[in-house]
Design a protein around this nucleic acid. Structure first.
Lengths: 208, 208
DNA sequence: CTTGTTTATTACCATACATCAATTTTTTAG
DNA sequence: CTAAAAAATTGATGTATGGTAATAAACAAG
């Protein structure tokens, strides 16, 4: 099934190809040449394949990942063996187990690739260094986290107040580009319903 | 019922009583005397009463609130008239509609007082000014938001993966000091179940 | 203390979604 | 293109939680 990041299909750094740059990562930040150079060094661009696992439960979380292309997800497997998807990440999103990343605790989650992807990774230490050397970046991330926070808030509300059908509709409306990339069972595990229920929800909606 | 903040029971600033200080708000921050003075000015300490409403849906969100004592909550009322509680805040917590606060959009939520409380409020403009004048405070809030974020993440997971009973047990274990302050229907609206179901859950647990 | 009001409990029935199992459709690999 | 595997659908049935209503308990005001 899923193959582990360290053991397979790590195609390697292609940063010298300059397909993507740090400026793609920090859109809107006005770097000086010096700052740009500092930021460049903090990143490593990598290719990953569908099924690759970037993070497993029980590990510390040294990196966060920025997605240039493709689709990744964070998910959790309960004691009963069921999968629950916390987050998907497509182009321009960041992903990792942020709770563990921030607190230096061990992760509860898997992060894996739903499709082949081009991503870059940055370590926590590099991040903190960057905050000091390029103060704009601390603000940049603050704003990112604020938005992220907002999306979590909306989700909590949606989970509390909505039926399976409503949650499904909200998802496809909010994230049409994600739906294209994922299997039904991925989406079901995000919505907190079974694949069977998702199938029935779609069937009902199609009739309308 | 609930009385509006602007219209009633605003006991007024008692900052000259020096019961609480900005140092209580920013625990761990080492202020210079000058910085302390700057920070002091950004705050207004106020007494609020059970039922007072600090924020209503459709309003812009000029303030965030820090709780010195008492209990507040953020909640949402759906089209069907049901209440869903997003968050409670007791001593040392911050509360507002952060999504709207950050994005300068109108709130979807009410914030009201579950009990009489002593709080202080700070405006978004003051915040941003403070970030500039006391850089430690931007870091302070980043860490706060990181923790907040983590609690939201855990909640999303709990909502996805847990039964009513499990969610209840998680809540009382995580927030024993909150449970003391709130009515059953407050807790039910946070867990996303009915008061009847909460009552049954407790009944079942008592038998064990 | 008494009375009215708010909050919590209990019982009975309804429903959304889960579970299990069989089948069809789509995707993948040779 | 074909065969095997993975994913999605459909049907029959089970279960947790919701809805309604009646009652009881807790709280608040005079």
């Amino acid at each position: 099934m899923a193959t582990f990041f360290n053991s397979v299909s790590l195609v390697g750094s292609i940063s010298d190809m300059k397909k993507y740059t740090v400026q793609d990562v920090f859109k809107g930040v006005n770097f000086s040449l010096l700052e740009l150079e500092i930021a460049e060094k903090a990143f490593e661009e990598i290719l990953v394949k569908k099924g690759d696992v970037l993070l497993t439960p029980g590990q510390f979380v040294p990196y966060q990942y920025f997605v240039f292309s493709g689709c990744l997800r964070t998910y959790f497997i309960s004691e009963t063996g069921k999968e629950y998807t916390l987050q998907f990440a497509i182009k321009d999103w960041w992903i990792t187990d942020y709770t563990a990343f921030f607190t230096n605790e061990k992760s509860m989650f898997y992060v894996d690739c739903v499709t082949d992807a081009v991503i870059c990774k940055i370590s926590k230490e590099s991040m903190e260094q960057l905050y000091k050397e390029v103060p704009q970046i601390e603000s940049f991330f603050r704003v990112k986290m604020e938005r992220f926070f907002g999306s979590y808030q909306k989700r909590i509300l949606s989970d509390l107040a909505s039926s399976a059908e409503e949650k499904y509709l909200r998802f496809v409306k909010s994230y049409p580009d994600i739906e294209k990339n994922i299997k039904n069972y991925h989406l079901a595990s995000y919505l907190g319903i079974t694949t069977e229920s998702l199938s029935r929800v779609r069937h009902e909606l199609a009739k309308k």
